[in-house]
């Protein structure tokens, strides 16, 4: 894995939230998933900044949806994880698992 492909903790959360949200993943849904599953309060700005970074690394792609009246005539920005993003995510999980191996019993880490 190239140096720039390593994922930070929040980047992993955002990518996992995208996968949970499915094909309708956009920033609000991503925020909701993270809040619901981790109880961590995140701002839309933080999610957008992370999405920008992930897209620059080609780990996610985005497309603009239709503009709607309830959104003040603004479109949704749907995102999905690319195959390259999936392999980066798998690699990150593998690294964490590797580091946790042997610690579970002693320290109660899973």
């Amino acid at each position: 894995m190239a140096k720039g492909d390593y994922l930070g903790e929040f980047e992993q959360l955002v990518m996992l939230a995208i996968l949970h949200a499915g094909k309708d993943a956009y920033a609000v849904a991503i925020c909701d998933e993270i809040v619901r599953r981790t109880d961590r309060d995140v701002s839309l700005g933080a999610v957008y900044a992370t999405l920008e970074r992930l897209e620059a690394k080609a780990l996610v792609t985005s497309r603009l949806g239709e503009a709607t009246r309830e959104r003040g005539g603004r479109p949704k920005r749907f995102v999905e994880v690319t195959p390259h993003g999936m392999s980066a995510l798998r690699e990150s999980r593998k690294m964490v698992r590797g580091m946790l191996a042997g610690l579970s019993r002693r320290w109660g880490l899973e």
Partner: peptide
């Protein structure tokens, strides 16, 4: 991104 962000804030 700003149009989508504004839309999200509006929503």
């Amino acid at each position: 991104a700003s149009a989508a962000l504004e839309g999200d804030l509006n929503e």
